[in-house]
Design a binder for these strands. Structure first.
Lengths: 342, 342
DNA sequence: GCTTTGTTGGACTTTTTTTGTCCCAGTGCT
DNA sequence: AGCACTGGGACAAAAAAAGTCCAACAAAGC
């Protein structure tokens, strides 16, 4: 069922909205028994005029009966409502989840795709598609977009398509070498995205595991300094979110640091920073690029991650509070919400 | 899947149309490879301007890529098209069936609901709902609607709901006593419909199995004559279609007539008339009301019947050629089409 | 290299649809 | 009878869609 809904959403994006609106109205009418237009408009939160149009439609469809004394649900309407119940629950369950997470963390937007990326590769694809779609909607003209690495980001890159305003954009890696494998590095992702979107890109080539001394000398280099300034001028950043210990292992962080992270209860990793369950920064990878304070001033900070196992990490990063948009999947979202309750 | 589509159709009637339109465009683009707006508009049969709006939409959705040299399908578009295939096949399969039957018999409209009424009671309900919906769309103000009896018609009656233009309408039985059981008699159906629709009704009380003499004297009666004139003034008739032998048995037609019907190859029954496989009238039940010549002059003749077993009967009545609108189900429609081929 | 025929996308007007606003004539309850 | 509701008609304002024309560009043929 979700399959078909998902297809329809691409062909008719405001399908769910319309369905929700009409369902809500019909539901209210059923609950109320006999109700008038103005009262109803008030309780569903629309103006009287647009509700009137909807009511006319419902009447036309024979779903409600309208008399001089008010309107009531018809037999067909009641039946439809019953059949609609599971669909709506499924459909708006996610919408409700989105709204709940959005308001709790004060985000601009939350998008949840159905499924669990841990289990189904298809869900991970959907996550990528949703991420690409969000990005497409947010970019303006001639903007710089900073991206991180990771398998989820790779999926986003894959689903990116050329869009008019993207032509003049630049894709850049958010941070330098973090020890990822080549195909998941920020540099690779940035260039893939640019190619997919028909945009341009600039890369930041720095070696992994930088010592303090090397770091300083690198920053002196005018080329590097220039590209870093360029990166910091980005107004949009898209980043993945990882589990702290998983990321530490994958990036071959040295044993002492790993132990210290474990000891401090590191839960999440994003943009080279490690966070504990309250969203505090525990550690920063020794590399260059966007700093957390750069992030705070950005127009759009988009976090993308899914899978039940990442729920806790996502919650932790959201607590830190620099996110604007979250794209995740159902399983992770449920985990996040569970954490709110406890 | 059909369940959800069916629900959606009630909440968003032009959903299928829009989906079809966009699918067609996308499909054309894929087929063509690289194609321009005007060429495309020509081949999908729209004006350039509305196609432009659609193209803008598809571009927005990232389903196509548009360059100065034309537009082509994107990866996402290709994928969507693939996923859409089964849906479309299912969805437009019926639409194609409808069109095929419509054009072959020169009807105004054909509506096919999915399923087989013989097997699934749910399909029969859908048939009723579709019939009611068609009727609701065709009635004008203060019109007279003649209806027949039968279980399908009872279902139509059940699904009828009050609609504004119906308030001033009259429901009347199309023909007098045909030997049906009470709950399936035209009189009962007419009154039920009127009650459901918030309209008025007039009945025609005549005994079953009328002899010639009684028939003549009945026609002399001014009350009867008046109501029959009223019935013949109807501009809309809604009738069921039955299998000849089944109907003959149910209505307890006398053995000789039954045998003669069988001998002549009677296949279908509608409005008290019996038809052979070529649509010729074999026999007319001895009762009063609408005659076949009245039917021919009507604005809207709506035939409603479903179930695989009725396919042959429906085809036979359609061949007679007085129908304007046919409401049936998938199983019956397939039977009808099969008969066209052989 | 030039022409021709296609392409997109911008700009404008006309038409249609949606929305906002008032108001009137009922209905049902007290 | 009075009151607080109801639906629905009417009309203007606003917004969206559609029709129309044209400029700028791309590709293919000559």
């Amino acid at each position: 069922m979700r399959e078909i809904l998902d297809i329809q959403k691409q062909l008719l994006p405001d399908l769910v909205d319309t369905m929700k609106k009409r369902y809500t109205i019909l539901h209210h009418i059923m609950i109320s028994g006999l109700v008038g237009r103005r009262t109803l408009a008030l309780s569903v939160g629309t103006t009287e005029r647009v509700l009137r149009a909807e009511v006319d439609f419902l009447k036309e469809q024979g779903l409600i009966e309208v008399e001089a004394s008010g309107m009531r649900i018809s037999g067909a309407g009641r039946e439809l409502l019953e059949r609609l119940e599971p669909v709506v629950k499924d459909l708006f369950g996610l919408t409700e989840l989105e709204e709940r997470i959005r308001s709790h963390f004060g985000l601009k937007q939350v998008i949840i795709v159905p499924g669990d990326s841990d289990v189904s590769p298809h869900t991970k694809k959907e996550l990528g598609r949703a991420g690409a779609s969000v990005l497409r909607k947010l970019v303006g003209e001639d903007e710089t977009i900073a991206v991180t690495g990771g398998s989820t980001m790779a999926e986003v890159a894959y689903h990116l398509t050329p869009a008019t305003p993207m032509k003049g954009c630049w894709f850049v890696p958010a941070r330098g070498g973090l020890g990822e494998s080549v195909e998941l590095q920020a540099n690779t992702i940035a260039s893939t995205m640019a190619k997919k979107a028909g945009a341009r890109y600039r890369l930041l080539h720095v070696p992994d595991h930088l010592g303090e001394e090397a770091y300083q000398s690198l920053m002196q280099d005018s080329h590097i300094a220039e590209i870093i300034a360029f990166i910091r001028g980005a107004r949009i950043v898209v980043h993945g979110i990882g589990e702290a210990m998983v990321m530490a292992r994958r990036r071959k962080v040295d044993p002492e640091t790993t132990e210290s992270l474990r000891h401090d209860g590191a839960l999440a990793e994003a943009l080279g920073y490690y966070f504990d369950r309250d969203g505090n920064i525990l550690h920063k990878m020794p590399t260059i690029g966007l700093r957390i304070e750069d992030i705070h001033n950005m127009d759009h900070v988009i976090g993308i991650a899914g899978g039940k196992s990442k729920g806790a990490s996502i919650a932790s990063v959201l607590k830190h509070g620099h996110e604007d948009v979250l794209v995740t999947d159902e399983a992770a979202a449920l985990e996040v919400v569970n954490r709110l309750l406890s």
